[in-house]
Amino acid sequence: MSPSQTFASQHFDEYCVQKAAPAGSSAYYALRQAPAARQAFLTALFALRRELEETVKDTSDPTVGRTKLAWWQKETAALAAGQPSHPVSHALVAHCDDIEAEAPMLRALVAGFEMDLDQARYLDFANLTRYTERVGGAFASVVARVTAREPARAHEWAGPLGNALMLAQFVQELGNDARHGRIYLPIDELRRFGVTAAELINRKYSPAFTELMRFQTNRARDSLQTALAGVPADERATQRTLKAQAAMALALLDEIERDQFQVLHQRIALTPIRKLWIAWRAARKR
């Protein structure tokens, strides 16, 4: 590798770190648990996901969002052909032994985010699950494949874990999502608990809201615990990043519950030192 190539690689890697895993973030501590040889590629994957999230969630015009996602579809084809143009794409190519083999899964991930441009509300949990599977489950499967003993089977157990991580994210980000016009709680569940979308957007707390969030938190927690238990025994040592993410998500759900689900006006988070300890311990748990 020439000096110029070395400099370029460092530049792309730094971009991915700043985009996906700045110091102190949950992603930062989760990625640090991965084998050193795979951290750069995993960081690039997390950066790609962040790019796609920003594309759909920070774009008010769906037409613009679709145009940007179409660009990313072309970019995944280009990187598979060895002609990347985006810093994240350059990093993916630089750190993946067979990027062409991963390209179909990357394109599927891009396609999954199109759902955010089609709808901002979900009628029931079955509809919401289709979204979490295409975004959360698909991403966790890609991440799991990087270090799995049997990459071809990773989706069987990583998919449910990715879905569960999304459910936990919906609890934490409820207030921020609502302020941006997105509510990832099923409409029929809002009705069941007597909470309106307007109350979420206007940050109105109530006993009904508390019970709604207790239900959402318990479901996310149960889903995480069930998904973790479903990781095969011979894969648990290979999945340090996903295990760290799940452990931090579980701890955060407990923190949110202790704070009486006050998530509409603030973003509750764990301290960096607590994230470090939780991630380190979870990554080494068999």
Rank of each mutant, 00 (worst) to 15 (best):
residue 54 E to N: 13
residue 55 T to C: 07
residue 56 V to D: 01
residue 56 V to H: 01
residue 57 K to Q: 06
residue 57 K to P: 08
residue 57 K to S: 04
residue 57 K to A: 04
residue 57 K to T: 02
residue 57 K to R: 07
residue 58 D to S: 01
residue 59 T to E: 02
residue 60 S to Y: 00
residue 60 S to G: 00
residue 60 S to M: 00
residue 61 D to W: 02
residue 62 P to Q: 01
residue 64 V to L: 08
residue 65 G to C: 02
residue 65 G to K: 01
residue 67 T to N: 08
residue 68 K to R: 12
residue 69 L to R: 02
residue 70 A to L: 11
residue 71 W to C: 04
residue 73 Q to F: 09
residue 74 K to C: 09
residue 74 K to F: 14
residue 74 K to H: 11
residue 75 E to K: 04
residue 75 E to R: 04
residue 76 T to F: 06
residue 77 A to M: 10
residue 77 A to G: 11
residue 79 L to W: 07
residue 79 L to K: 03
residue 79 L to C: 05
residue 80 A to P: 10
residue 81 A to R: 11
residue 81 A to T: 04
residue 82 G to E: 12
residue 82 G to F: 06
residue 83 Q to V: 03
residue 84 P to F: 05
residue 85 S to V: 10
residue 86 H to S: 09
residue 86 H to D: 10
residue 86 H to M: 09
residue 87 P to Q: 10
residue 88 V to W: 11
residue 88 V to I: 08
residue 89 S to C: 07
residue 90 H to I: 05
residue 90 H to S: 06
residue 90 H to D: 11
residue 92 L to Q: 10
residue 92 L to S: 04
residue 92 L to P: 05
residue 93 V to M: 03
residue 93 V to F: 06
residue 93 V to Y: 04
residue 94 A to M: 05
residue 94 A to G: 10
residue 94 A to V: 06
residue 95 H to I: 06
residue 96 C to Y: 10
residue 97 D to G: 15
residue 97 D to R: 15
residue 99 I to D: 07
residue 99 I to P: 13
residue 99 I to Y: 08
residue 100 E to N: 14
residue 100 E to M: 13
residue 100 E to D: 15
residue 101 A to P: 11
residue 101 A to V: 09
residue 101 A to L: 12
residue 102 E to R: 14
residue 102 E to Q: 15
residue 104 P to F: 09
residue 105 M to V: 11
residue 105 M to S: 15
